[in-house]
């Protein structure tokens, strides 16, 4: 299973890696020395990966310093240095384990169309595979047929779900779900929320309310608050992360749709700016296509060996 998953990430990132690798490869071929022209070109390559101008400039600046320190002028060295730099940015300490009284509650949020519902199905599948008893909460009471969509997934997965009427209060659905999970001894609750643009203050307030009622019902919950970000997202991703983080204190990011050619570089900018780690990546349409994020692998796959 593990090997299979590893293979998949390489597969889906193949395009990404190839394009970056070829570009950097070409660059190394043309320019043997690391000079300002070389770094300028490198800058462009990073920007086209959606890493953003600010984060790119900082990365380039750090690279420059490293080059000075090492007194190397060999452009081939850039592979090693760049990889180290990106890994350093994406690193986070996974070993900190929270002491959780079951059920563990996971709240999913994000702007419209990032893939929240599909991510929830994949997460539920993952936890079920781990032998956990999972309860899904269809607290997206806004979008037409969101209830039905999650319902279909729950049925396919054989997972339990708490649904409601369209237009119902999202917080009360979430509350009912957590209450049921506590009573019936579920290990894990995953709560779907309606997609919302982070600029709509009333909708962000609604989300805060969902969080509030959950924590009232179950101390310490929600234990994980995941922001789902589409890999094709540009610089607006930072504003999304900022706003959702301000409202909810995001614990991690799920980067979806990484099976395309989009590079998802925005997560580097988000990690640099807000120190929110990526926890999962979506790499395909199948249920098993959600894998735990591994900064080492991610960077190796982006930059190539």
């Amino acid at each position: 299973m593990r090997l299979f998953k590893r293979k998949k990430l390489e597969d889906s990132l193949y395009k990404t890696r190839k394009s970056l690798l070829t570009k950097i490869g070409e660059l190394v071929g043309i320019k043997k020395n690391i000079d300002s022209g070389f770094l300028g070109e490198l800058e462009e390559i990073l920007i086209t990966s959606d890493i953003g101008v600010k984060a790119t400039l900082e990365i380039i600046h750090d690279l420059e310093n490293r080059v000075m320190e090492q007194k190397t002028r060999d452009s081939g060295e850039i592979y090693v240095l760049l990889k180290e730099e990106l890994k350093r940015i994406l690193y986070y300490d996974k070993s900190v384990l929270k002491d959780i009284t079951p059920p563990e509650v996971i709240l999913i949020a994000g702007v419209n169309g990032t893939g929240k519902t599909t991510t929830i199905a994949k997460l539920a599948y993952r936890f079920k595979e781990e032998g956990k008893k999972v309860l899904i909460s269809a607290a997206d009471t806004f979008r037409a047929a969101a209830q039905e969509q999650l319902g279909v997934w729950a049925e396919r997965l054989g997972a339990d779900i708490v649904q409601s009427q369209a237009g119902a209060d999202a917080a009360s659905v979430a509350y009912d779900t957590v209450e049921k999970a506590i009573l019936k001894g579920y290990d894990c609750v995953i709560i779907d929320t309606a997609g919302r643009l982070h600029t709509k203050s009333n909708l962000m307030e609604e989300l805060k309310k969902v969080q509030r009622v959950i924590s009232k019902k179950h101390e310490g919950a929600p234990h994980e608050i995941l922001l789902v970000i589409d890999a094709t997202t540009g610089q607006n991703g930072i504003l999304q992360a900022q706003a959702f983080n301000q409202a909810l204190n995001i614990t991690g990011i799920v980067l979806t749709k990484l099976d395309g050619t989009a590079k998802g570089g925005i997560v580097l900018a988000i990690k640099k700016e807000l120190n929110i780690p990526v926890k999962y990546v979506g790499i395909g349409e199948k249920l098993e296509d959600l894998i735990e994020f591994n900064p080492e692998e991610f960077v190796e796959d982006i930059i190539g060996k």
Partner: peptide, 29 residues
Amino acid sequence: MTGQEAVSVAEEFEKRLVVDGFALTKLDG
């Protein structure tokens, strides 16, 4: 909200289908 990827999306759909135009969504953000 699409980033740099917009180009490759547009290029590929145009190449395969020849589109007549675009609709840009979520501009209220």
